[in-house]
C-alpha cells in the first residue's frame, strides 16, 4: 500500500535529516551523470578541435563575443538569485524563496532570448549545418563540424535550462504556499544544485566556443 503519509516525512525514512541526506546524495549522483553526459560532448569537441584547428578558429571568431559575455553575466546573476532562494527557504521564508526563484526564471528567459537571437543570426547567415548551410567561398572545409557542435552543445544546454524552468514553476508554487520549512527544504536545495550545474556547463561552453583561439593564425 502506498497511501500518502501525512507531513513531510515519507514513510520509509526514520528522520527528516535522513530523508534530506538521501535526497541530496541522489541529486549529486544525478549531477555526476550529467557531467558524464556533457563530458562526452566535450570529448567530441576536443577531438575535432585537434583534428581541424583552423575550422574551429574561424568558427569561434565569428561568434558574437558581446552577446556571449552578456549572457554569461545574466546566467551568473541567475545563480546568485537561485542561491538567495535556497537561503530564503533555509530560513523558512517561503515567499522570499518563491520571489527569488521567479527572478531566476526571468534571468533564464533573458538568457534564452539572447540565445535565440544568436540562433536567428546564424540562420540568417546560413550557418546552420544540415538545414541552412552556405558558409561562403572563404569558409574552412570543416567549418560544419564547429557549427554542428555549437548547436548540439548550446542546444543541450538550453534544453537543460528549459527543464530547469519547468521545475522552478513547481518549486516556486510550493514555496509560495509554505510547503518548505527550515528543516525541510530539499526541493529548493536540489533545484539549486541543478541550476548551478547548468550554469557551470555554460562557464565551460563560453570559453570553449567563443573565446579560445579567436585570434589564432587562421582568423
Amino acid at each position: 500500500m502506498s497511501s500518502r503519509t501525512e507531513g513531510a516525512l515519507a514513510h520509509h525514512f526514520e528522520t527528516l535529516e535522513q530523508q534530506a541526506e538521501a535526497g541530496a546524495l541522489g541529486m549529486w549522483a544525478f549531477l555526476i551523470q550529467e557531467v558524464m553526459f556533457f563530458g562526452g560532448l566535450f570529448t567530441v569537441y576536443l577531438v575535432y578541435r585537434t583534428l581541424h584547428p583552423a575550422a574551429f578558429v574561424q568558427g569561434s571568431a565569428h561568434l558574437p563575443i558581446d552577446l556571449g559575455t552578456l549572457n554569461t553575466g545574466v546566467l551568473i546573476g541567475s545563480s546568485l538569485t537561485m542561491a538567495l532562494a535556497v537561503r530564503g527557504a533555509q530560513l523558512g521564508r517561503g515567499k522570499n524563496a518563491a520571489l527569488f526563484i521567479l527572478a531566476t526564471m526571468l534571468l533564464a528567459c533573458v538568457f534564452l532570448g539572447i540565445k535565440g537571437l544568436e540562433y536567428s543570426h546564424k540562420w540568417h547567415d546560413q550557418l546552420v549545418p544540415g538545414l541552412n548551410w552556405n558558409p561562403g567561398p572563404d569558409a574552412d572545409a570543416h567549418l560544419n563540424l564547429f557549427y554542428a557542435l555549437y548547436f548540439v552543445m548550446t542546444g543541450c544546454h538550453a534544453l537543460h535550462m528549459l527543464i530547469g524552468l519547468a521545475l522552478m514553476v513547481v518549486v516556486a508554487r510550493k514555496a509560495w504556499r509554505g510547503g518548505y520549512s527550515p528543516g525541510n527544504f530539499l526541493g529548493v536545495e536540489c533545484l539549486g544544485l541543478y541550476w548551478h550545474f547548468v550554469d557551470l556547463v555554460w562557464i565551460f561552453l563560453f570559453p570553449l566556443l567563443y573565446l579560445l583561439g579567436r585570434h589564432g593564425p587562421h582568423s
Partner: peptide
C-alpha cells in the same frame, strides 16, 4: 550510461541533418 546517451543523440543528429559528425567526407571521424 550518459555517455552512450549523448553518442546516440549525435548519431540521430547526424542521420537527421547530415552535419558530418561521423562522416569522413565532411571531416568527421
Amino acid at each position: 550510461t550518459p555517455v552512450v546517451a549523448i553518442t546516440i543523440l549525435l548519431v540521430a543528429v547526424e542521420r537527421l541533418f547530415h552535419v558530418g559528425l561521423f562522416d569522413p567526407a565532411l571531416g568527421g571521424d
